[in-house]
């Protein structure tokens, strides 16, 4: 895509999203709006996960660890003074004195994740294959244990609550647009091509002078920033969460979105989010049982998870690169599409 065309495409996309955000709440009820908000948050998380896991080929199982850190950091920062007194009486003075608005708290949460990702990633990004997956799984478990034990900051295993409910559709969609634009700028740039070459062949990449560790680490770190942002959105959407919210179940949910959609493109991540979310919602309503008058299907709670798992495996067998593979959506006839 030429620069001008890309610019136009971006403007059009942003306008479409802004339009949708403006009219959606008028068209449908609050339940659907909520599903869309959750989709936007998942979009931020899955797209950022795809940066490291898909584009550099370092499959991390620790993304949710950063989401957790983001949720807790932003939560602590945006808790009101009164809430801090009652829920976190042992918070150190320098933290208990401040209450940040939503946007700065979210950005700080992202930045904390960046620092953490640099510290964790510097050694871990040297690993490859399943070794990095298992090591990052270890990271997730360690984050979980620390959250449970850092009682002064997190209330431990008890529910962290009192976070202001600020994640509206505007915020969630806005951050999704920012995430997609930033990721697209990075991925379809010389840096992004370095990521791909690192993924495809480490030795060849080094032979042509690409430094593998910085490439992987930068993708991991940028992904962690948006994981932190997404964590903040999640925290301010629900208002309360606990370490158990950010563990294996959530990890599997996000991974299934990424894998089903296709982890080698940003569109894939977004398609995965939409497909899995809509499918889960539909199945969740179907498994409650159907009454056709003449005959009835009894409720089968848990069936939706099983169907999702089977779809996951079928994708792995018949389309291991997901629905989208490495293709991206263009804007069809509006912009003439060329391979990046």
């Amino acid at each position: 895509m030429s620069r001008a065309a890309a610019f136009v495409a971006t403007i059009v996309a942003v306008a479409v999203v802004a339009g949708l955000v403006a009219i959606l709440p008028q068209l449908v009820n609050d339940y659907i709006v909520r599903v869309v908000i959750v989709m936007c948050i998942s979009g931020v998380l899955v797209a950022s996960m795809g940066l490291g896991n898909g584009f550099t080929g370092v499959f991390s199982l620790g993304h949710v660890g950063f989401v957790a850190v983001g949720a807790y950091v932003s939560g602590i920062l945006s808790l009101s003074q009164a809430a801090k007194h009652s829920y976190l009486p042992d918070l150190p003075g320098w933290l208990s004195g401040i209450t940040l608005p939503f946007l700065p708290a979210t950005i700080v949460a992202g930045l904390v994740c960046v620092v953490l990702a640099l510290v964790v990633g510097a050694p871990l990004m040297r690993l490859s294959g399943y070794f990095v997956s298992v090591a990052t799984l270890g990271f997730l478990i360690i984050v979980n244990v620390v959250l449970i034990n850092a009682v002064d900051f997190t209330r431990g295993a008890r529910t962290f609550t009192g976070v202001p409910l600020e994640t509206t559709l505007r915020w969630a969609a806005g951050w999704l647009v920012v995430t997609v634009i930033v990721l697209a700028r990075v991925v379809y740039s010389p840096t992004g091509r370095r990521y791909l070459s690192v993924r495809e062949d480490v030795i060849a990449a080094r032979a042509v002078g690409i430094k593998v560790l910085p490439a992987r680490l930068s993708a991991f770190t940028l992904g962690a920033f948006f994981a932190g942002v997404g964590g903040s959105l999640y925290g301010h959407y629900l208002g309360s969460f606990s370490p158990a919210s950010f563990y294996m179940a959530y990890t599997f949910a996000l991974i299934s979105m990424l894998v089903i959609g296709g982890m080698q493109s940003i569109s894939g991540a977004l398609v995965g989010v939409v497909v899995v979310t809509v499918l889960s919602e539909v199945l969740r309503n179907l498994e409650r049982g159907l009454d056709f008058g003449a005959f009835a299907i009894p409720p089968l709670y848990g069936a939706s998870q099983i169907v999702l798992g089977i779809i996951f495996i079928l994708i792995m067998i018949f389309r291991p690169s997901g629905i989208m593979g490495d293709r991206e959506f263009g804007l069809g006839r509006f912009v003439k599409r060329k391979r990046a």
Binding site: I32, T277, V282
Partner: peptide, 9 residues
């Protein structure tokens, strides 16, 4: 997707 969800609802 939305139509599906809404129809179901």
């Amino acid at each position: 997707g939305l139509a599906l969800a809404a129809g179901l609802a």
